[in-house]
């Protein structure tokens, strides 16, 4: 749980539809590269990395109840374009068995894509500075997970302003929008504003996600550093391919 798997039915429809649209847009941008390499060995490689990610996400580190993603490792080896495709495949398959929502596959894919793509660029930059692969791997995984968590939090923050209407519970009083002869005003707008903000305690949510997440980022960072170091020792030049 180093990142959030947004579940179904929590975010407003417009937001998760936007997630699908953005993901489709990204895949469309890279369609040239996919078309060019569609007969190459890249497709089985993407499938294999997607499988590695699905397996790693479905296994918990037992005493800690965390799972790792290996998104940064996959991002570094596959490169940004193929990793976006990989994260979509992973999220769709995970949604099939209830791990993350089906409607929010677009948003979840964008969050995980951000992890891999940021990890890819950070690792490239940090490798020159830190020299040691394990440290560069740790730092790039930690930072990209931190940033992608903030991306997920940003999505929830955008959604939370709409959460009341998304759930449809409670009441929406917009006297200024009411049409007709009669205008019912049962409460002052300031009181209503106060009530809406109490519906979803974003600070509480932020505290929980960052609190649990920080342990996950460190764990994922350490494991990513270890995996990258192992790969570099066993197969030198793997990151150049």
């Amino acid at each position: 749980m180093s990142h959030i798997h947004l579940p179904d039915g929590i975010l407003p429809v417009g937001l998760w539809v936007l997630g699908w649209v953005l993901l489709a847009g990204l895949l469309f941008i890279f369609r040239g590269q996919f078309q060019k390499e569609r007969f190459s060995s890249k497709i089985p490689l993407v499938a294999m990395f997607a499988a590695v990610m699905v397996i790693s996400m479905s296994l918990e580190i037992v005493p800690l109840f965390y799972h790792i993603n290996l998104s940064v490792v996959s991002g570094i080896i596959l490169g940004p374009a193929w990793f976006i495709l990989c994260s979509f495949v992973v999220n769709l398959i995970l949604a099939f068995f209830g791990h993350g929502g089906i409607t929010v596959v677009g948003l979840n894919s964008l969050v995980i894509s951000a992890e891999g793509v940021l990890g890819y660029f950070m690792f490239k930059a940090l490798r020159r500075i830190l020299k040691k692969i394990s440290w560069a791997g740790f730092a790039s995984a930690f930072l990209s997970l931190l940033l992608s968590t903030f991306l997920a939090l940003g999505i929830v923050a955008v959604g939370k302003t709409n959460l009341s209407s998304a759930f449809g519970i409670g009441h929406e009083h917009h006297p200024e929008k009411q049409k007709g002869f009669l205008k019912f005003e049962t409460e002052k707008p300031e009181e209503h504003k106060k009530e809406v903000s109490a519906e979803f305690d974003f600070r509480k949510f932020l505290f929980l996600v960052l609190g649990f997440g920080s342990i996950g980022w460190i764990l994922e960072g350490l494991i990513t550093g270890g995996v990258l170091s192992y790969l570099h020792k066993v197969r030198p030049g793997i990151f150049e391919g």
Partner: peptide, 14 residues
Amino acid sequence: PLIFALIFAYASLG
């Protein structure tokens, strides 16, 4: 998935 939903639900207890 309730593990993740619980975080959202807890934040919405208000």
